[in-house]
Design a protein around this nucleic acid. Sequence first.
DNA 1: GCAAATTTCGGAAACGTTTCCGCAAAAAAG
DNA 2: CTTTTTTGCGGAAACGTTTCCGAAATTTGC
Lengths: 335, 335
Amino acid sequence: MDNVNLKKLAEELNLAVSTVSRALRDNHEISQETKDRVKALAAKLGFQPNPHASSLRQNKSRTIAVVIPEIQNNFFSQVMNGVEDVAQRKGYHVLIYLTHDDHNREKEILQVLRNGRVDGLMISVSNTTTNIEHLEAYRQSGMPLVFFDRVCEEIDVPRVTTDDSIAAFKATEHLLKVGCKKIAFLSLACNLSISSGRRSGYLKALAKHGLDNEMIIECGTDDETNRQNIRELLQSDQRPDGIFAAVEKFAINTYEVCHELNIAIPQQLKLVGFSNLSAAALFDPPLSTIVQPAYEIGKEAATILFKIVEKKMLLPNEKRVMIASEIVERKSTGK
Amino acid sequence: MDNVNLKKLAEELNLAVSTVSRALRDNHEISQETKDRVKALAAKLGFQPNPHASSLRQNKSRTIAVVIPEIQNNFFSQVMNGVEDVAQRKGYHVLIYLTHDDHNREKEILQVLRNGRVDGLMISVSNTTTNIEHLEAYRQSGMPLVFFDRVCEEIDVPRVTTDDSIAAFKATEHLLKVGCKKIAFLSLACNLSISSGRRSGYLKALAKHGLDNEMIIECGTDDETNRQNIRELLQSDQRPDGIFAAVEKFAINTYEVCHELNIAIPQQLKLVGFSNLSAAALFDPPLSTIVQPAYEIGKEAATILFKIVEKKMLLPNEKRVMIASEIVERKSTGK
DNA sequence: GCAAATTTCGGAAACGTTTCCGCAAAAAAG
DNA sequence: CTTTTTTGCGGAAACGTTTCCGAAATTTGC
């Protein structure tokens, strides 16, 4: 009653195991009549092929891994959503791993995934990743690999990102347009490409408008530290009239401090930040955001990964995919 | 260079494959000296056992599946976070499947997971699930199964939930305490236990305070339809002075309509809703929420699932785990 | 009407583990 | 000094597929 397998089907039908296997896979060497008989019985008994036997034999698992820093973040949730959609449609399974921005954890995960458990992997690297040996080792093993969002510049694999620099440029310019003279940039403290990209966009915008009063505040994962940094910033005599938050978290921290210090947004301080939170529209005041095409990034990265897994040729423009972010102007930068 | 397996290690060391296997697994039949030699070489060559071969032989995959309606929702994200933490610590892998609240999709997923790909499954059932055959079939197959949050009452498997009814009772009573006389309940239109639990808590609170003017509005997945329902509600002459939203989405929809109709929260309408959005504190006005212990639910459900998988005895109180939700009072129900 | 090609299937090897069974050599028991 | 037990290891089966290699039976070519 328990496990119905090929052997059981074969016995029942007086066929060889190989014949049954072929019939189920619509092999042309099997007559239509036999195929029908086999499939009928398989359906009747609810036969499901054992994936481990199949994977072992074929050396492919129909499974991919997604490695992300955290899931409790709208951006990555939306990415997962995109990935899962594509995977589901292609009949693939999705393993999820969280690094919590811990380099060592990331290393362990990659280590353990180099043994055939998955056919390929997509990753948004941890912001504590300085040493890239584990990524390089994974690539060297020949396994399909795709970066998305937080990519590793040094390793030449397909990547799907957003135009961080351009988006940051636009956001900064937007702040300038609405009258800001002194704009602070809350930067993600790490040597990630997204971090430097956003910073450079910020600097370019200032430069274009002839400003050299950049203020770059490095923020991190700890909310209280961030708030303290922002508090000092807003209480200093160098107080900015605009803040550009490189990640959602820092925008939230800014709101918190402003409420605490009774600083009115947007009258006394204008604020814009990267964020994929749809509820940003309900904030007090509604937050102007740069929203990244998270779902599309996930979808695109997965599509490319599957192409590599299935050894299809990648189009030239699929090796470096960049999808534009969109700036949504709301009250936090209004007059 | 490519695949280093037991056979290769064995040849290199002049040992039998079986010996190598045992050595790596610290079998007591192997001398310490041999173990050391084997492990040294395995480490040197970066040997990773093939999980499919292992799973096939042992009939266990060290993998669990999590089936949820959506991931782009703070509650489920936090659940995943909890699950992943436990799984990671126990060396298990986590497959994620999204149903998008589609019964058929849910059915297909469960179907395909009944073949040994995973050692167990935890699920929060889709709200379109009326027919429970697929769940029953899965249980009948003897595979470990745990429900969380959106459980299926008819099937007797361990479940981890929150005290929906009590939480709803408290929320309703909170609205009464701050002066509401006519409270509408935005209900999730489905026959899910969480839906009926929350509704009954709402009704109980009204009854306790001698009120019989219940207003139950069924809402669904489509935002515009929900907004239309809420719009009609707030424009009718039966307009309530308090709204209790059964799920986060409906609270958001209420904000949207209130902004649109210029209804002041909390002066003209008080609002409370189930929500795990930490940014609710930044809303205009800050939203009073019932926050479910999502992380703990995920953690607990996973812990129980692993216990079943590993055939450990479940404590009596682990078959029905209920973790309290917490009500966070903010301005949306303030005076 | 016979050789050749095609169709349809069976047997067995292979994937890389784990584990059952057996068997020497060494140690313990008597 | 013999018998039993223990220790340490090797050989081979087994898990359930897929696929290679035939091999009858049927059809086609001439």
